[in-house]
Simulated scan of single mutants.
Amino acid sequence: MILVVLGAEIGTRIGTHLREREQSQLALQTSTIGHPPIPSQPIIPSATDRDNSNFITTVVAKVGTAVVKVEADRPVSQNPLVEKFLGNLANEDRVEKGTGSGFILSADGKIVTNSHVVDGTDRVKVTLKSGQVLEGKVVGIDRVTDIAVLQVNAQNLPTVKLGDSDRLVQGEWTIAIGNPLGLDNTVTVGIISATGRTSTQVGIPDKRVNFIQTDAAINPGNSGGPLLNASGEVIGINTAIRANAQGLGFAIPILTATRITNQLFATGKVLHPYLGVQMIPLTAELKAGIAKEPSLRSKVTAQRGALVMKVIPHSPAETGGIRPGDVIIKIANRSIDSPNDVQQHVEASKIGRSLKLEVSREGRVRSLEIELGISPTITESAEK
């Protein structure tokens, strides 16, 4: 009973304050990131006087033909009151048209894009740079990472080369190719502004991705297109923009995307490991607030970690003994600083495997082993 009351007290006394603080920090971070300075002497291929070519034109010539336009038609649900009065006429021409980008992974027609580009349909129209239009089948989608894979019936198609998103350096060049605002095969250039941006920082907390941040212009229609390095290798999938981000875009790292696309092509779906908790970071500011509350001071004694606000009923976390008010301080003997650390450990684990945790509970450290389950639905994907 004490722990249940503790969870409620934490939620009512601290939750609202923390959400407001995180929102204000995100707004400040978004407005102050700006554009990191471009190195004064970037190491790039030199331009030639003969044809004005440079590393960007070289990349575009090499990769541009493997970037496609993806168009999806989705039926739109009609308001029941409208249907009542208009009858069958209410359903006529009620189709939502979506446009995005994608790129070709294999010469026999395997294509990757964003799940939100094709969600709600199983057939799409794929247009090559040459103007050739192909019918594409949606092989599988993963809403948790916003990745989808398509198949078109074709051979000898141009393909991209994949890079290593784990070796990105802040400040290195990036090139985005896509179809922003319906303008086919548009090229924009920028740099890597940052790596490891959490889904919460990006503004889409229901995703399980640590994003690449770039200032290469990414607009509606760029979704699903490639983010490239100066060598023309795909390092990410352009996926998210923020209306108030002042030109900042975000991309799914290609190593994350490859892991997901391999599963989608093999089985048509992705099963994500599931723990079943809702958490907030135990920051110095939060600790200071807890210290002022006599009823909480002796309950939350850890100095850092992920504070468990809620345990999902019948989840692996509940079965394994995690309780509201616990602070997750270690997983697999590695220190935990934030909920994102927990998310990454869970996502890197396997369903059915035991995850070793250390939690701080009322001044004592307890060791737990949690057997991870299968993430039940996309609506619960934020509950790690």
Rank of each mutant, 00 (worst) to 15 (best):
V63C: 12
N340C: 04
V4G: 08
L183W: 00
T58C: 04
G321S: 03
I351C: 01
H116C: 08
T377C: 09
L372V: 09
L357S: 06
N262D: 15
V63W: 06
P316A: 02
T58K: 15
N153R: 11
T30M: 10
L275N: 10
L134Q: 06
A243E: 09
R364N: 13
D337E: 09
T121E: 00
L181Y: 15
I312C: 00
T214P: 05
E285L: 06
S360T: 05
G373T: 05
G289Y: 11
V346I: 14
S295Y: 01
G100E: 09
V112L: 07
R334F: 05
G15S: 07
T377I: 12
A382T: 04
G289Q: 15
S101E: 01
K287C: 02
T214Y: 04
I235N: 07
T48V: 13
V187G: 04
G11W: 05
G102P: 03
G34T: 11
S130P: 07
I44R: 14
H116N: 08
Y274H: 02
N153T: 14
V5D: 12
I218M: 01
K384T: 14
S298K: 14
H17T: 13
S199V: 08
V68N: 12
T239G: 11
I38Q: 15
V63L: 06
A348R: 15
L307H: 07
R259C: 00
L134E: 05
A216Q: 11
D166E: 12
Q25G: 01
R366H: 12
G34E: 07
T16Q: 13
K292P: 04
R297I: 01
I192K: 07
K299Y: 08
G247F: 10
M1Q: 14
P45E: 14
Q29G: 14
V67N: 01
Q132M: 07
S315C: 11
I14H: 05
P180V: 00
T48H: 11
K299G: 00
L6Q: 10
R353G: 10
K69E: 15
Q246E: 11
D119G: 02
S349C: 08
T267V: 09
V4K: 14
S295L: 08
D93Y: 09
D142K: 03
F211S: 03
V187Q: 00
N88T: 13
D341G: 00
I280S: 08
V144I: 15
S354A: 14
A154W: 11
N222L: 00
T256M: 05
G249M: 03
T214C: 02
R364G: 06
P294Q: 00
G363E: 03
A8I: 08
T261I: 10
L183P: 01
A47R: 14
Q155C: 05
K384S: 09
E172A: 03
V95N: 08
E83N: 08
K310L: 14
L307R: 13
R50D: 04
A348F: 12
L86K: 03
V169T: 13
G136D: 08
L255W: 01
